[in-house]
Simulated assay, not measured.
Amino acid sequence: MGLTRHGGSFGVDNLAIAAAARDVLAPFRGFPDPCTTWQCTPRSSYVVEWGERPPATWPDENERQAFYGFVRPGSGHPCTPSSASTSCSPMAP
Rank of each mutant, 00 (worst) to 15 (best):
Gly11Asp: 02
Pro34His: 10
Cys40Thr: 15
Thr57His: 11
Thr37Pro: 00
Thr37Ser: 11
Gly30Trp: 14
Val12Asn: 01
Thr37Gln: 10
Pro42Met: 13
Val24Phe: 07
Trp50Asp: 06
Ile17Asp: 05
Asp13Ser: 13
Arg43Asn: 13
Ala26Cys: 04
Ser45Thr: 14
Ala16Glu: 07
Val47Asn: 04
Gly11Ser: 05
Cys40Arg: 15
Thr41Pro: 01
Ser45Ile: 09
Trp58Val: 09
Ser45Asn: 12
Gly51Pro: 04
Pro32Arg: 09
Ala19Ser: 01
Glu49Met: 14
Trp38Ala: 11
Pro34Met: 12
Pro34Ala: 04
Cys40Pro: 08
Leu25Glu: 03
Thr37Ile: 15
Pro42Val: 13
Arg43Asp: 13
Asp60Thr: 12
Phe28Ser: 11
Glu49Phe: 11
Asp23Phe: 07
Glu52His: 10
Ala18Met: 10
Ala18Lys: 03
Pro42His: 06
Asp23Pro: 05
Asp33Gln: 06
Asp33Tyr: 00
Pro27Gly: 12
Trp58His: 09
Pro55Met: 00
Glu49Tyr: 03
Pro42Asp: 11
Ala26Tyr: 09
Gly51Val: 08
Trp58Gln: 08
Trp58Tyr: 06
Asn14Glu: 15
Glu49Arg: 14
Ser45Val: 15
Arg22Glu: 03
Thr37Met: 13
Ser44Ile: 15
Ser44Pro: 01
Pro34Glu: 08
Thr37Leu: 10
Phe31Ala: 06
Asp23Glu: 13
Val12His: 02
Tyr46Ser: 06
Glu52Pro: 12
Gly30Asn: 11
Ile17Gly: 00
Trp58Lys: 08
Asp60Ala: 04
Ala16Ser: 00
Arg53Asn: 02
Asn14Pro: 01
Tyr46Pro: 02
Ser45Ala: 14
Pro32Leu: 08
Ala56Trp: 05
Ser45Leu: 12
Ala26Thr: 13
Pro27Ile: 13
Pro34Gly: 09
Ala26Ile: 03
Pro54Ser: 13
Gln39Arg: 15
Ser45Pro: 00
Thr37Glu: 14
Glu49His: 12
Asp13His: 09
Phe28Thr: 11
Thr37Phe: 04
Cys40Val: 15
Ala21Arg: 05
Pro55Lys: 03
Phe28Glu: 09
Cys40Gln: 13
Pro59Thr: 03
Glu52Leu: 14
Asp33Phe: 05
Pro42Ala: 13
Arg53Trp: 03
Asn62Cys: 05
Pro55His: 01
Phe31His: 11
Gln39His: 15
Ala18Thr: 01
Ser45Cys: 07
Asn62Pro: 00
Val12Ser: 03
Leu15Pro: 04
Asp23Ile: 05
Arg53Lys: 00
Val12Arg: 02
